[in-house]
Design a protein around this nucleic acid. Structure first.
Lengths: 291, 291
DNA sequence: GAAATAGTGTCTTTTAGACATTATCCG
DNA sequence: CGGATAATGTCTAAAAGACACTATTTC
């Protein structure tokens, strides 16, 4: 074909700098469960713009060197300090969506490709590279997405409600509820990530990504309760999980202890080979936001 | 705050050209239904690279001037020739995902933000601006994603099977099955778009976006049958659609004619106000691709 | 009138959810 | 032992799907 020759000539004279530039970044919503509470990984920005503000971890895609998925995995490893062997393989990472308004960054037009990650409870693994500080922050502290809101579940106070509030406002290290304004449009990205997470554990077996290699049905239920922000019926949940083919498979073993206040030793399971849950575990009526 | 001063100094000295550039494009998977067959809008590339090959319609995002959604809407209008009043409002447009491998375009590193559009049957509206030609091509002609594949529905040949094959291979204008290799990685994007479309009409009332303002239940069923590639039980589908709150609402009228070979005049409906279908219209068993 | 289609009725199976019950283990 | 928890059983209601049937229209 003549097109062949055409293309070579074309490429030889092509100047990538001829265009007004757009920068591309990846930003990651990393979710984990700590003591039954859903947390998101945030970093304090070390430089302008939004210096000192909390932001999602992320960074620029290296032009010509890496794909978006690779950039996201690299940033995730850098910001969490996870090495290749130690857990990064157990983290679920998927693309969330792209955000590209011309006004979202004061420096220039920046398109951000957002990713969503589910991580098991990491042993206080934090410490960014270029970020001033990184911390797991309960998603509740960012307000409006706390619970997807049905009735405010009066009979079911969330676990650690007291402990967390006390710890956050009073005692612990400097982790007071951050100024709720995240940098850039990261609040919107976080909200989208939470929506996606809540929807996705309905039909994909990703809740297990929050847990260790072996877990009990109760621990799995606590994942759903934390992500959805509502309590579930233990008995029905148990039977339902076991009825979904390939969701979990028994290890044959049991935990070494029962509940802290008694009870039989629960059996242990590991993630099964299903990639979709069928039938799905639908959320209890989301107040029919349906119409 | 001192950060204010910092940021201004910072921005004054910031040089957007300092980085190796990445270009950003939008590419759109526009789906429509023509005579009961699912079609995708493709353009023939007028220049290199991949000159002469079929590709998804799209183009570069104008740096500093438009958001991703705006760029997608602009490209969609340009490529379909749809004006603002004439239908573009009835087109559903949503972000599909981003594709950003460094090798996907020979010119430079290009990140493409893909969009998915559902359009009503446009009156042969085609004619690109910068593209050599645009055409609606049956998605089947691109092979592996034809039907999601259960058993090949032996007793239910697809509507127009004969007519379409004959028309495409023989009679009509120059629209023979294109060289199946789409430009760039557009085949993968198209496949993802079809997956999304098939999944999304399960729980969102988007099938109506393929139809006119008023439609019959049978026409709605034909949308599902075309997108899913399988026949559905007419009676059960009918009852189910009417049982989902807010999916469709009656106009009170009926069509002026019954079926072409007889039958009562069907009632007319318009899209309801639901944004999610509950309960959802789940696909008949997808051969449990579940495990 | 014959054939095709719209719309409804009926029945069975599956699933969700409320609730009860039994068994096991911690202190 | 007493309380808490794991796991299972039972019952009801909702939904999915197979199938039959009636009514209406076109040719």
């Amino acid at each position: 074909m003549a097109a062949q020759q055409n293309e070579q000539t074309f490429l030889a004279t092509y100047d990538p700098h001829a265009f007004e530039p757009i920068a591309v970044t990846v930003d990651i919503v990393v979710l984990t469960l700590r003591q039954g509470v859903l947390h998101v990984l945030l970093v304090r920005r070390g430089g302008p713009p939004f210096q000192g503000a909390w932001a999602l971890p992320g960074g620029f895609v290296k032009a010509g060197q890496e794909s978006l998925d690779e950039a996201a995995a690299r940033e995730l490893a850098e910001e969490t300090g996870l090495d290749a062997e130690h857990g990064i393989g157990r983290v679920h990472l998927e693309q969330l969506g792209s955000y590209g308004g011309p006004e979202r960054d004061p420096r220039m037009h920046i398109v951000s490709v957002a990713y969503l990650a589910f991580a098991p409870d990491l042993p206080e693994a934090c410490a960014g590279s270029d970020a001033a500080a990184a911390a797991w922050i309960p998603v509740e502290e960012f307000g409006p997405f706390a619970a997807p809101e049905g009735e405010p579940d009066a009979e079911a106070p969330r676990p650690n409600e007291q402990g967390r509030r006390a710890g956050a406002h009073g005692g612990g290290p400097d982790r007071r509820p951050p100024d709720r304004a995240l940098a850039f449009d990261h609040a919107a990205i976080l909200a989208d990530g939470l929506d996606r997470a809540r929807a996705k554990i309905e039909y994909a077996p990703l809740a297990t990504a929050f847990l260790g290699a072996e877990f009990t049905i109760t621990e799995l239920r606590e994942v759903y309760e934390a992500v959805w922000g509502r309590t579930l019926h233990a008995g029905n949940f148990h039977r339902k999980v076991l009825s979904v083919p390939g969701f979990v498979e028994s290890t044959g073993g049991t935990a070494t202890r029962g509940g802290s206040r008694g009870g039989p030793r629960p059996r242990l399971y590991r993630a099964g080979d299903a990639r979709l849950l069928h039938p799905a575990l639908l959320r209890p009526d989301r107040e029919d936001s349906v119409r």
